[in-house]
Every structure is written in structure tokens, then in C-alpha cells.
Design a protein around this nucleic acid. Sequence first.
DNA 1: GATGTTGGCCAACGCTCGTTGACGACGATA
DNA 2: TATCGTCGTCAACGAGCGTTGGCCAACATC
Lengths: 199, 199
Amino acid sequence: MNGSDSISTGPGSGAPRRSDATRGAILAAARERFAADGYERATIRAIAKDANIDPSMVMRYYRNKEGLFAAAVAIDLRLPDVSGADRRQDAGRILVEHFLDMWEDNEVLTALLRVGVTNQAGAERMQGILRDQLLPVARQVCPDPEQVPARAALMASQLLGLALTRYVLRMPPAVELVRAEIVAWLAPTIQRYLTAPSP
Amino acid sequence: MNGSDSISTGPGSGAPRRSDATRGAILAAARERFAADGYERATIRAIAKDANIDPSMVMRYYRNKEGLFAAAVAIDLRLPDVSGADRRQDAGRILVEHFLDMWEDNEVLTALLRVGVTNQAGAERMQGILRDQLLPVARQVCPDPEQVPARAALMASQLLGLALTRYVLRMPPAVELVRAEIVAWLAPTIQRYLTAPSP
DNA sequence: GATGTTGGCCAACGCTCGTTGACGACGATA
DNA sequence: TATCGTCGTCAACGAGCGTTGGCCAACATC
């Protein structure tokens, strides 16, 4: 009936289709290419070849390249709750560890960062994540509600900066840092940005 | 005589030429486009149009797109000396203020960051800047020589993270921070990354 | 077994890109 | 004034891009 039924961006949109495997292969290939090459150089043709299907299938399932990107980088950071009195003073460490977990096994984040830098839609997606996911966390632990956006932005600057130097630019000294070092250095920074009195 | 004489990447390569104005216009337009659009979307044609000349002139003067990029993003951070005993304890503030100065009036840095994220040559250029310019500064103030690379990388992560969120992604809360706030929040972070005992 | 729907491939479109080479106009030098 | 290197334009090339539409085979439904 509805023509747009055949365009889906995720689960929960009806019965399983025979093409679900192909759709998944396309999404997986797209994430990999977007992460490795950025928006412009990740071509539909290359993604289709990775997924072993014809480029026209990508258009059928995701309408156009923008739709494919939107479907490929749907992200839930699954940020932990840090509102408890005991966890509040550990928020920095908890958040840094969580971010490292997310980045290490999730190429979607690399894709999003790479694309966000050169693509308006990608940048807006990242702004949305800051607003909808990072800001609420800051609100949990930050004393003054008025300072929440600024503190969330500071936290984002340090966490994204680490991701940038380590996972995207791959600067050797940043790559060589081991997990424990990163946590030990960054956790106090994040903790201070979130809870320390305004300097 | 030498054909490659006509391809120059900067001053000091001989007598002034009649085409110096054009060369400069091309470089200025290239910087603007690379900063605004990244490597792929900054087309030679668009740059040439901005400079009011024919695209083929760009090729004649800079050989190809890669050569143009290399010429456009030659960067000297002009990092201040922080080796004096009195300045050493102020290194964080001095460096943060210097970085803000550099970023605010210098679109070359935005260009380099935008391109570094999606282009291998750009990424290598940034690695070179970390190695040749940031690392020596860390060496001036860092107690243990063995820790210099790690500490420089931490400093880079915070400074580039700020540039990323504020000047490239333009996340609203990061844009709204005023200069004094940024210095007050980031200076202690940088100072700690450089001089605090290993945690 | 006929019919309609879905999954997939193929060939082509219009467009833009980086790049090339031929050619004319200008200005310095002799 | 004649010559020659420099500056600039114009038209075109081959390639790759996103995207489209037609076609065929496999499946589901009756």
C-alpha cells in the first residue's frame, strides 16, 4: 500500500522482510566507509560493492545518500546515570570510561565525527547528541542549572578532542596512551568541568 | 630555464613576479574554501571563481589540487616561549590565550582541521605540527622527558577539542562561551597536563 | 497453476570534477 | 620595432559521481 513502507531506518517498523540481510549489509558497509572516508569520499558505489549488491539497491532502500547516512549513524550513547550521591563524585571517571568503551567498539562514532566536520547534516546530528544526551548528564551533577550548557560544552570539548586526536587523526602519542592513563588524566578534568565551582 | 621555477609555495623563491597578486588571490580563496568546505567540496573551480581567474591558472601555479592545499596551509603556530621559571607556572594560561588568538583570526587553522579529518595528507600535516611545534613547548615545562609526548598529546586533545566544538562543529554552547570563561576553565587543565605529577 | 509482490541486476542519464593543451594579449628586452 | 617569456582565457577530455527506470527471477497468495 504505502510506498514509503519500504523505506525503513531501523527495527520496530513491521514484520521482518526478506531483504533485511541486505539492508543490514548496506548499513554495515556504510558505517565502515563513512568512518574511514568521510561523507564525500564514501561513495554509494563503493558501499554497494562492499555489501555485494548493486548501487541501485541502496537508493531503493534509503532513498538517497543523505537518507543512508541518517540511517547509518543513529546513535544512542547509552550514557550511565550519575545522579546518585555516591556516583556524583565519580562522574568524571565513569564518563571517561564509558566514552572509551563506546569509541573502541563503535565505528559509528568515528563515522559521525568524520562526517560532522565536513557535512552540515552531520554537524547538526552532533549538536543534537550534545543537546539530547550530554546535556542531561551535566544537569544531573551540575550545581547551577544556568551553567549546565557551558559545562556540557567543556566536557564535550575534552572528550571529542581525545577522540579526534586518537581515533581520527591518529596522532602517534595519542594512540600510544593506554586506557588507564587516559582515565587517570581525563577523569579529573571532566569532574572539574562538571562539578567544580565556577572559576 | 628550470620549468619548476614557476611553481612556488611562498616567499623567498626569487624576484617578484607579475603574477604574485594572482597567486596570492588563489591562496586566499583556497584557504577560505578549504576552511569552509573541507578538501573534497572545495573545488578548484570554485576557488578559481573566488579569485576571479581561470581554473587552469591554479594548475599552472600549484601543479595540482594537492599542491595547492600544501601551499595554502603552511602553518607556524608561533608558540610563545614558556621556559622561564616565572612563565612556567603560567604556561597553561599563556598557551590557551595564544591558541584563542590564533584561531580567532586565522582561518588556516580551521582549514587544516577540516581537511585533516578526511584527508590523509591533512592528517599528516597535523601530526607534523604536533611533533615539531607542540612537543617542544611541552619539553620546556615538563619535568620528565619520557612523558613529554603523552603530555603534549593531552594538551593537543583539549585544545583541538575546543577548536572542534567551537569553530568547526559550532555547537551553540561552545560558541557562546566567552574568551575569559574559556581561559579560566582550560588554563588549569593544560597546566595540569603539562606540569602536574603523573597521576 | 495463475497472479501480484518483492529482491536484485543492468544500462544509462546528466552532472561535476581535476586536469590538459592550444591560443591570444601584454610587457620587458634588444 | 621585432622577439620572447609571462599571464590569462577557452574549450575540451576522461573519469567518477548520485540517481533513475526497466527488466527478470524468486517468492507468497489464492
